[in-house]
């Protein structure tokens, strides 16, 4: 199986869908002639032309709204936010329009679009470029939220998202774009709402999404090698819809849950998972639900301190050991 980057996996997904469905188009700042600020759309403008791969001015509200309007008419926009942090400029279009129009029209109108881009901290660019809004968006019934951790998942989930008839907020990660992984050629889909156990274990469940999954895998190796603890790593892959069954099955097996989340702790994704476990896994748990999240402060610029703000493998290991 070919080994390609997370970035290339996404690029391949776009090429597959642009070829398959003429209603699919890509839009965003620098996606066409510049080849993408992070080169995720590299080569696509050259291959598919200006009708299908479209540069926009720096006007998030207008081009997000344009894509909602085009999707209402049956097109399938895949719109890039250079950073998900920039979504806040166009939040009205995402929440009120993409998120609510289907409901407010009594189901008459669909908004089949993908809003995508990186949503991560840890890149030494300060608070305004380091937001992780998956919790905000997942808080809106009507939107779906997907956060792939690996190249294989990125491609399969992107193809599913483009074919989905609802709006999908697809969150990538600039720190993962260069990661390598095995990815099949051609189109394949991974359903939204299906988590994956990325590592099996019996002693504790590490539950995460996005880059935090990789942090958990690294922590699990340390736990196994140095502490004799076999951790199971559950990758949520999509936040909404949420695969509760896989989460609950894992905790029923391990009787311990440590939630690892680059989202902030207050009303973050991990808060929702904790509520789920408290409601449905109370009798299975041998220890309190513990969390390792981003520190509850705006993303700091200073590099060594920023590293402290995000969960790392050592912090996860320490948290797991504290539960025994």
């Amino acid at each position: 199986m070919p080994v390609i980057t997370y970035r290339q996996a996404l690029n391949d997904a776009f090429a597959e869908e642009l070829t398959r469905d003429e209603n699919v188009f890509l839009m965003g700042e620098e996606v066409a002639q510049y080849n993408g600020a992070y080169k995720v759309t590299e080569g696509l403008w050259e291959r598919f032309g200006s009708k299908r791969v479209i540069d926009t001015p720096i006007s998030e509200a207008a081009f997000l709204g344009l894509c909602v309007g085009a999707a209402m008419m049956g097109l399938r926009p895949v719109v890039e936010l250079m950073f998900w942090s920039f979504a806040y400029v166009g939040f009205d279009q995402i929440i009120n329009n993409a998120g609510c129009i289907r409901y407010m029209s009594g189901g008459l109108i669909n908004v089949p679009m993908v809003i995508r881009g990186p949503a991560n901290g840890g890149t030494n660019v300060g608070a305004t470029h380091s937001h992780t809004p998956e919790n905000f968006l997942a808080n809106t019934p009507g939107l779906k939220v997907v956060c792939p951790a690996t190249p294989y998942d990125a491609k399969g989930l992107m193809i599913s998202s483009i074919r989905d008839n609802d709006t999908v907020c697809f969150m990538e990660n600039t720190l993962l774009y260069g990661d390598l992984g095995e990815v099949p050629e051609g189109a394949y889909t991974i359903p939204l709402g299906v988590a994956e156990v990325k590592r099996e274990g019996i002693d504790v469940s590490l539950i995460a999404h996005g880059r935090a999954v990789l942090t958990c895998l690294a922590a699990a190796e340390i736990l196994s090698a140095e502490h004799g603890v076999e951790a199971e790593v559950v990758d949520l892959r999509s936040i909404r819809p949420l695969d509760e069954e896989t989460i609950l099955n894992s905790v029923a097996k391990t009787h311990r849950a440590v939630l690892v989340d680059e989202n902030k702790p207050f009303c973050g994704v991990s808060s929702q998972i904790a509520a789920l476990l408290a409601e449905h896994a109370f009798d299975d748990l041998d220890a309190p639900i513990l969390r390792v999240t981003a520190l509850d402060a705006p993303a700091i610029y200073s590099m060594p301190l920023e590293k402290l703000q995000l969960p790392d493998a050592q912090a996860v290991v320490a948290k797991v050991l504290s539960s025994f």
């Binding site: 289907r102 409901y103 029209s105 009594g106 189901g107 669909n110 089949p112 019934p141 009507g142 779906k144 599913s160 074919r163 989905d164 008839n165 609802d166 359903p191 939204l192 709402g193 299906v194 999509s238 909404r240 819809p241 949420l242 695969d243 509760e244 929702q272």
Partner: peptide, 20 residues
């Protein structure tokens, strides 16, 4: 009237939990 896939009971509307 919230999610097309749920309303139409498609395959995509049946994986995972949509409402909490």
């Amino acid at each position: 009237g919230i999610y097309h896939e749920v309303d139409h009971k498609t395959e995509a509307g049946q994986t995972g939990r949509f409402f909490f």
